[in-house]
């Protein structure tokens, strides 16, 4: 019996249990047929996630030039989801903008880019944080030693989603049995960590930003995750109750 996307989501949220690769039960493995993966879309989304991850990092010169260099390639994405193509201010303006929005302002941080801050009492490392660290490690990743950040930083989460999609695509042709764990991780990160953040996060950006760049990219991020259900249904090839017509 194949699982619908909705019931898959429910399962993920109902069972906050360890998803160790190779340890899934039969029900889960049979829930998905890897041949249904829309590889091209997966690659596109992977790149969008990665690009968004770059955007929500501190714009060092290297990051800035990556953002600037690839902006054109994501024109469609930003027009569709952000309502406009973001205008990239000069790096000397973007850096202070990033700091004042996401790192430190006068005594506080307006739009903390940490998933934890949008769950519980607004402090870092709230309850789900350790589960996140576990998901990342079990998916075979960890934070690079040079990165002094928390795992639930938006940029890390987005990069992680990007990497998971990459794994899905790369291992799609192999007989790897861990693909379902990848999907579980991808959906859980998207729905448990990123989605609860986007509304409040973008609201805060809108009230504190001096340039449009993070307003537009924030809006794109928000719309993308509001639109996550049908995207994942289409991309992963799941049956959906509510979006059946799309599969037609």
């Amino acid at each position: 019996m194949e699982m619908s996307f909705e019931s898959l989501k429910e399962t993920i949220f109902a069972q906050s249990r360890t998803l160790r690769p190779g340890m899934q039960d039969k029900h889960e493995t049979s829930a998905w047929d890897k041949n249904r993966l829309d590889v091209e879309s997966a690659l596109a989304l992977k790149n969008i996630f990665f690009y968004l991850s770059l955007i929500f990092r501190y714009p060092t010169e290297q990051i800035y030039s990556e953002i600037a260099g690839h902006l054109e390639a994501f024109t469609d994405f930003f027009t569709d989801y952000g309502g406009a193509v973001p205008e990239l201010p000069p790096i000397d303006d973007l850096q202070p903008e990033y700091i004042s929005l996401f790192v430190n302002n006068q005594g506080f941080v307006p739009a903390a880019p940490y998933a934890s801050c949008y769950q519980g009492d607004g402090l870092l490392m709230s309850d789900n944080f350790y589960r996140l660290r576990q998901i990342i490690m079990e998916s075979g990743f960890m934070l690079d030693a040079s990165v002094h950040e928390l795992e639930d930083h938006l940029a890390v989460l987005l990069e992680f989603c990007s990497s998971l999609l990459n794994t899905l695509v790369e291992k799609n042709n192999s007989s790897d049995k861990n693909l379902m764990a990848c999907i579980y991780a991808l959906l859980e990160i998207s729905y448990r960590y990123i989605e609860p953040l986007v509304d409040d996060f973008t609201d805060k950006i809108n009230s504190y930003a001096s340039y449009d760049f993070y307003k537009v990219t924030g809006k794109a991020l928000k719309s993308l995750f509001h639109d996550a259900d049908p995207i994942y249904v289409q991309l992963l090839g799941f049956r959906s109750n509510s979006t059946n017509e799309l599969q037609g």
Partner: peptide, 26 residues
Amino acid sequence: RRKFLGLSSSAIAGALFGPNLNMLTA
């Protein structure tokens, strides 16, 4: 709104991201 999924421009662009950009490692 989801046309980006079908288009390949961004897919290609991704391949061109510079090296050493990952915050996560194996």
